[in-house]
Computed example of a mutant assay.
Amino acid sequence: MSNSKFHPYTNPKNAARRRAAIGKIHIGKTQLNMNEETYRAMLLTHGGVTSSKDLTNEGINKVIRHLEKSGAVFTKPKRAGRKPHNLDSQSSRADQLGKIEAQLAEAGRPWEYGGAMAKQMYQKDSLVFCDRKELAGIIAALAKNAQREGRRVR
C-alpha cells in the first residue's frame, strides 16, 4: 500500500469540479469588471487567501455566493444536443434527418428543438421515433418557419 495521500483539495475525483468552480470565480470577476487589486482583496475577505488556487471548498462557495450577491450571473452553456445516433447512414430516414439537421443549424437551434417539434406535432418523444411522413411534416414546418423569419428556405 502506498504512503502517498492526496491533499483534500486536489483529490483527482474532485479536481474537475474544483477547476470548474474556480473558473466560475474568474467568470464572475470578469463580469463585475474587477481589477486585480479588488479581486485579491475580495478573495482575502471572503476566502481568507489571495489566490483562488489556495481556496478551500468552503472558501470557493463563499466567494461564489459573494459574486452572485454582487451581480454576477452564472448560467449553464446552451448545448447543441446530439443527432440521433441509432440510425445508420443506410436508414431510409437518414436523408430526412440530414435535412432537419441542416435546417436546425441554419436557424441556430439545438437538436432538442426538433425533438420538441416531434413531441408537439406527433406526440413522439424524439425524432428517432418519427416515421418518414412525420419527418416530412417537421421538415415542412421548419421550412415554413425559415420563410416566416426571412431565412433561406432549404
Rank of each mutant, 00 (worst) to 15 (best):
T45H: 10
R17E: 15
M42P: 04
K53A: 14
E37W: 14
L43W: 00
L32Y: 01
N33W: 11
S52P: 02
R18C: 07
Y39W: 06
E36F: 12
N35T: 10
N35L: 07
G48V: 02
L44S: 01
H26W: 08
N33K: 14
H26K: 07
K53H: 08
R40N: 01
R17H: 14
T50F: 10
R40W: 02
V49D: 01
R40I: 06
G48W: 01
H46G: 03
A21E: 13
L44G: 04
G23Q: 15
L44Q: 03
E36N: 13
D54S: 00
R19M: 15
S52W: 08
I22E: 12
K24V: 15
A41K: 04
Q31P: 05
I22R: 11
G23E: 09
L43E: 01
H26Q: 13
L43I: 00
L44R: 08
A20S: 14
G48E: 03
K29V: 02
L44A: 07
G48S: 03
R40S: 02
H26F: 08
I22L: 13
R17Y: 13
E37Y: 14
T45F: 10
A41N: 02
I27G: 03
G47V: 02
S51K: 07
K24L: 15
G23V: 13
K29G: 03
N33G: 04
M42I: 09
K24Y: 15
E37M: 12
R40E: 02
S51C: 11
T50E: 10
M42H: 08
G28R: 00
K29M: 05
L44D: 01
G47L: 04
S51G: 12
I25G: 08
A41L: 06
I27W: 04
R19G: 09
A21G: 06
T50R: 10
R19E: 12
L32H: 06
